[in-house]
């Protein structure tokens, strides 16, 4: 029953002059992954991206939270776009975002209390995450609900992959293990796994990777790699 209803819904959605997955709309999804990545190209939302990449687990939760707030915010603002007075739009946007972030925070506190504690103020700081404000301001205010929805997913994914990449590098080299949600720690460089090496395993944890400065350097290196591949992103001096 439910699948049938979904199919019907999809067909209804396709009817308007522009199909949901037209070439233009697909670009909305794929562009933020590389050419206009929110972190490495638009330089938005760095604040929260760096602080919570010590562990993969936190990064995953953070990405999901941002995905939720982003989609909610973009869709709501896009629905309201014709009734928001121009002069107070920033406050309206902040209120919409803050309400969504409160929901996320309460859910995390209720179901994942230990992760919520580790993320501490950074869940609250999603409110001032420039990606969300930036997309609301630049996209949702001037576009229909469908494209805004896709834009939100695209940008949240662009944010998420950088976050996950940084978190994986930092956690693997910093603590020699990866913590996955629901699976506990998966150890890479540890005595149990590589017991035949000298005591302590063959890899000594590099504690520097866990400290804050390395997050910046890892992002710097990601930017370097991305721009040497995609040369049109190189900045003039």
């Amino acid at each position: 029953m439910s699948t049938e209803a979904q199919v019907v819904e999809k067909e209804v959605e396709k009817k308007p002059s522009e199909p949901l997955f037209s070439k233009k709309n697909r670009k909305l999804l794929t562009d933020p992954l590389d050419d206009s990545n929110p972190i490495t190209v638009q330089v938005l939302g760095i604040c929260s991206a760096l602080a919570i990449t010590v562990q993969l687990q936190q990064a995953v939760i953070m990405s999901l939270s941002v995905l939720f707030v982003m989609i909610g915010g973009n869709v709501i603002v896009s629905i309201l776009r014709n009734s928001i007075p121009d002069r107070i739009r920033i406050i309206v946007q902040l209120v919409v975002i803050a309400a969504l972030v409160i929901i996320v925070n309460e859910v995390l506190k209720a179901f994942l209390p230990d992760i919520s504690e580790k993320l501490s103020v950074f869940v609250g700081l999603i409110i001032t995450n420039c990606i969300i404000m930036g997309r609301l301001e630049a996209f949702a205010l001037g576009n229909k609900v469908g494209p805004s929805f896709l834009d939100a997913i695209g940008n949240a994914m662009g944010y998420a992959w950088i976050l996950l990449a940084v978190a994986i590098v930092r956690e693997v080299f910093g603590s020699g293990a990866i913590s996955l949600p629901g699976m506990g720690q998966v150890k890479f460089f540890d005595t149990e796994w590589a017991g035949f090496f000298a005591n302590g395993g063959f890899y000594e944890h590099n504690n520097l990777m866990i400290l804050p400065p390395m997050a910046l350097i890892v992002v710097g290196i990601i930017i370097w790699i991305q721009r040497s591949r995609n040369t049109k992103l190189i900045e003039e001096n």
């Binding site: 400065p213 710097g220 290196i221 370097w224 040369t231 190189i234 900045e235």
Partner: peptide
């Protein structure tokens, strides 16, 4: 060239953080 602007700023900030 690929490090110009943003990239080098990140790395310098990291060094300052250290």
């Amino acid at each position: 060239a690929p490090l110009r602007g943003l990239g080098i700023t990140f790395i310098i900030t990291g060094l300052m953080g250290m």
